[in-house]
Amino acid sequence: MNKKVFMTLILCFVLITAGCSSGLFEDEVLRIATTTSLDNSGLLALLVPDFEYEYEVEVEIIAVGTGQALALGENGDVDLVLVHAPELEIAFVDSGYGTERHVIMYNDFIILGPESDPANISNLPLSADAITKISESNSIFVSRGDNSGTHFKENQIWADAGLDPDQNGEWYNSVGQGMGASLVIANEKEGYILSDRGTYLSQKENLPNLVVLFGGDSSDKNPDLLLQNIYSVIPINPEKFENVNADLSDLFVEWISSIEIQNQIGEFGVSEFGIPLFYSNSTEWISSNSLYIEPQDNLKQENNSG
């Protein structure tokens, strides 16, 4: 008797498992490779469930470094990449791995350091000047050192300053870790570090030894255009990898570029940090926004004259 019950249970289990794995009860899946910094911000966790609900699909987010995210795309292991290293992205599309690069939003990078600011970098106009001063004073500098989008930006600043960080000494610490872990190390060492503003704001409470020394109060007030951090989505080329879900990734691009979602992006973080963590920047949003700017300007003039 017991044996019968047991066998029935086993049979049920096998059938359910088989049913699930054969896709009977499963939604379509969209795999997105993105960077840890974006994933840590919580933006995707807020937006993506709406997409899943609206189109009855399942989205899997794989959060890794930009280098690995692009490598996942180059191997056809994901359907879409969402990263922030324009030069690498353009090369990625040029090599035929991605179909097209769609800019969706931006924020910025800032230089953090101890309040005492031993290298005296606050109030400088350019990030290259700041990094030169840090290097000249041999102040502790923590580098991501992991070929991530942020590390790429660091190297751009070094190049802009005409310096080669690899030849530097004891004060230069290449840690090869994610943004959060690197910030914790900079905080412990009371050193300087380049960070995206979002990750810093979300971890600020645990970083008592760090303050913003370069980059201003919000992303749109950053004095150095080089520190803009532009995020794009790139669908993986279905001609190269048959297994990728091209229809679904095109749908995602269309959805995230839409005015409605772009507005949500621009509001994200305002209630918690007082400033937006991301600024909307899709082609659709820019073109619709330029229509809005004119009447607003007219309104201002009327107010001024009145």
Binding site: V64, G67, Q68, E74, N173, S174, G176
Partner: peptide
């Protein structure tokens, strides 16, 4: 070693932490 060492190049980077770093960069 990752937590306590910090994987700092030329200072505290060992084989196991280097493997994690290279994997994260997609240099499989």
């Amino acid at each position: 070693v990752m937590l306590v060492g910090g994987n700092i190049e030329g200072h505290t980077r060992v084989l196991s932490t280097a493997i994690v770093l290279e994997t994260r960069q997609g240099k499989f």
